[in-house]
Nucleic acid binder design. Structure first.
Lengths: 109, 109
DNA sequence: TATTGTTATCGTAATATTGCGATATATAAT
DNA sequence: ATTATATATCGCAATATTACGATAACAATA
């Protein structure tokens, strides 16, 4: 046990869950907001801005990268991270469709 | 360690992370979609539809309820679960604002 | 080449999550 | 009162997550 039974769900459900999970941490939300606000890559400014150790931030960046939400290229001395447009669009689509399925309040509860 | 450092993040960041975390599991996405599609409460039809044990589903429902995403009332023999309109609106708002912060592709990556 | 600055990875401890069988609880029907 | 049906909770094992110090890797510069 302790292992999610992905095989009984649809690809879309698993994919959305993976994306949400990657964002479901305040540090990773803060990192994404930092990238979004500056509208460019971030190159290590994060350490010091957030109150987390360098190793921890690197780990969070890796998770965001593994999920495909951000992408990074080596840029000389520091790494350049930015939003992956493809995944961001997918996220807006999937999540938008999911949230929009709500038809409004029902009378039973 | 193993404990999220919520105190170094804003309330909004923590709140959004909590909501996302509650949804970040394929079973819970499936449960929510099931509620959304039928547009009414669900009363135990889930067991059997999903391939999970009754105890597991009950636990997932509890997590969604704890996060405030669904609400339930005792309805005779079975429990009635439906979307919590307030939280759903909050989710649409917060998540919409978050996703909309993206200004489009940059040239650096 | 040696040094400096930056990011990644390893190893580890503490805690959380996932899933389920067993059992408890509670209502409706007999 | 007993039985049937439905949901919740407990306890457990397996696995995942979170955080960080230590250290490695790597490019730029002196």
């Amino acid at each position: 046990m302790g292992l999610t039974k992905t095989e009984i769900f649809t690809n879309k459900q698993n994919q959305l869950a993976t994306l949400l999970k990657a964002m479901a941490h305040p540090a990773r939300i803060a990192i994404l907001q930092r990238i979004l606000i500056s509208n460019t890559c971030i190159c290590g400014d994060l350490v010091g801005e957030l109150g987390l150790a360098q190793a921890t931030i690197s780990q969070h960046l890796k998770e965001l990268k593994n999920a495909g939400i951000i992408q990074g290229t080596i840029e000389g001395v520091s790494i350049c991270y930015c939003i992956n447009p493809k995944t961001w669009k997918l996220l807006e689509q999937q999540l938008g469709a999911f949230l929009a399925e709500y038809k409004g309040e029902t009378t039973c509860c």
